[in-house]
Amino acid sequence: MRIAVLEDDPDQQAFIAACLAPDGHRLTGLERAVDLRRWIQLEPFDLLILDWFLPDATGLEVLEHLRHGQSWMQPVLFITARHQPGDVVLALEAGADDFLHKPLNPEELRARVKALGRRLVQPPAGSVLELGCYRLCRSRREATVDGRPVSLTEREYQLVNLFFSHPGQLLSRAFLMELVWGLSGDVQTRTLDTHISRLRRKLGLDGSQGLRLRSIYQYGYRLEEVGRKEGGVIASVGTDAR
């Protein structure tokens, strides 16, 4: 499974990774809630291991946002050094699927993760996105057009994944910069615009293949579906959602 570990203690992250290493899971260690917010948009994680105390939020706040703000349905394993009687109830009511106290027992951790893996409710990391003649394989991080593989850099792949995951939605430059580059605030967008230009060229996202990556003046970009007939475009489909 592809597992996100939101834990601000590097030693604890390393310990969890060592415990789960025999089972061949792919772990991404994160230290702040804002990091998870970014990565959850870029990676189809199968499971989240979530600590109670974080530098910029509580685990309960993170869980509430995931379940209600992003409708994230994959299993969550809550871990904490707290031993208050009501902690387990709070975590489960917030949407956790299981709960472990620190210090973690390696064998118990492995067993709980395996059990949660059986609860997956969506296609795992190997899921494929298909839009018309375009196909994005997330497990191999590959894109094809009419079966033809297209070479993409890591940042280009992340952008394509975002646009293909939100077709028809207007995504702001600030949103794209924060998720792909981890930047926020007053930053130059020239780098983003250059990447978008390359994507249009590499993938033919000019409408000729049924999809158009459209620039929205002074705001951002939207991936639109277009239909073609003799004489031009029939229609563009898309709603401003961000």
Rank of each mutant, 00 (worst) to 15 (best):
A111G: 03
R37C: 08
E154K: 12
G59V: 10
F175G: 02
R26F: 01
L100A: 07
D193N: 15
K114N: 05
Y221D: 04
A174E: 15
A115N: 09
P167A: 01
L192C: 06
Q13S: 08
Y221H: 14
E61Y: 00
P44I: 08
H25C: 02
I16E: 02
R138H: 13
S71I: 06
T80H: 02
M73H: 12
L170C: 05
G126L: 08
A235N: 07
R67H: 04
Y157H: 14
E130V: 15
L77E: 01
N105S: 10
A241L: 15
I3Q: 01
R118T: 10
P10T: 06
P103W: 02
L20I: 04
G132E: 09
Q218F: 07
A57N: 11
G69C: 04
D98H: 13
C137A: 14
A125P: 00
Y217D: 10
R140M: 11
Q169F: 06
R198C: 08
L136D: 06
L136S: 09
L20G: 07
G182T: 03
G210L: 03
E178W: 10
E43I: 12
H101L: 12
L183A: 13
L171W: 02
Y221V: 00
A96L: 07
V150G: 01
V150C: 11
G147S: 10
A91W: 03
T194Y: 12
E7R: 10
Q218W: 06
D186T: 09
S184K: 13
M73F: 00
L30F: 04
Q218P: 01
H166R: 12
L54A: 02
D193Y: 04
Q169S: 14
M177C: 15
L183Q: 15
L205M: 04
P22T: 11
R200P: 10
V5C: 04
R32L: 08
L162G: 00
E230C: 01
G204Y: 08
G231H: 05
S151A: 15
R135D: 03
P75K: 08
L100N: 02
E156G: 13
E31M: 10
L203A: 10
R228V: 09
E225L: 05
L176C: 03
R119N: 08
V62G: 07
P124E: 02
R212V: 14
R201A: 13
V180C: 09
T153Q: 07
V76A: 07
L90A: 15
H65V: 01
S236F: 14
L205I: 04
E43S: 08
S165D: 11
R200A: 05
G29Q: 11
E64L: 13
Q74A: 10
G168Y: 06
P75Q: 02
H166F: 09
A33C: 12
P167H: 05
Y221M: 03
Y134D: 06
L54N: 08
P124K: 07
V187P: 00
L42N: 06
R26K: 11
G207I: 10
G220K: 10
P22F: 08
S151V: 15
R214T: 13
A17P: 00
V145D: 05
Q70E: 14
Q70V: 09
E178Q: 15
S127Q: 15
K202W: 02
L100W: 04
Q188S: 15
V88M: 13
E7G: 05
Q13P: 07
R138W: 05
R110D: 04
R201C: 07
D46I: 00
I40S: 12
